[in-house]
């Protein structure tokens, strides 16, 4: 997985690139979020979903056609 797993390499630079300001408390929250969720999100990127064909015009109120 890319360096996104490294909070220091990913989050401050990402915020800076978008011009988003964050104080220490917000960064601490983001660090906790990153540590909690990033490993699972990285796992998503490792999944082979190539056989999942798109569902065009998916209607969530009904079963897939």
């Amino acid at each position: 997985m890319p360096a996104s797993g490294d909070f220091e390499a990913f989050v401050p630079a990402g915020l800076a690139s978008m011009g988003i300001e964050a104080d220490e408390v917000e960064l601490a929250v983001m660090r906790a979020m990153h540590e909690t969720y990033w490993p699972a999100m990285a796992g998503f990127l490792d999944l082979d979903l190539s056989d999942v064909d798109p569902e065009p015009m998916a209607d969530m109120s009904q079963a897939p056609q």
């Binding site: 990402g14 915020l15 998503f44 569902e55």
Partner: peptide, 24 residues
Amino acid sequence: RGIAKYRMLMPGSVLERGRAIRTM
């Protein structure tokens, strides 16, 4: 406040995986 800002950093590829898992 922290969550709102962190969400902006979500890579599109990860969000797209979420939608693919929805379809699956």
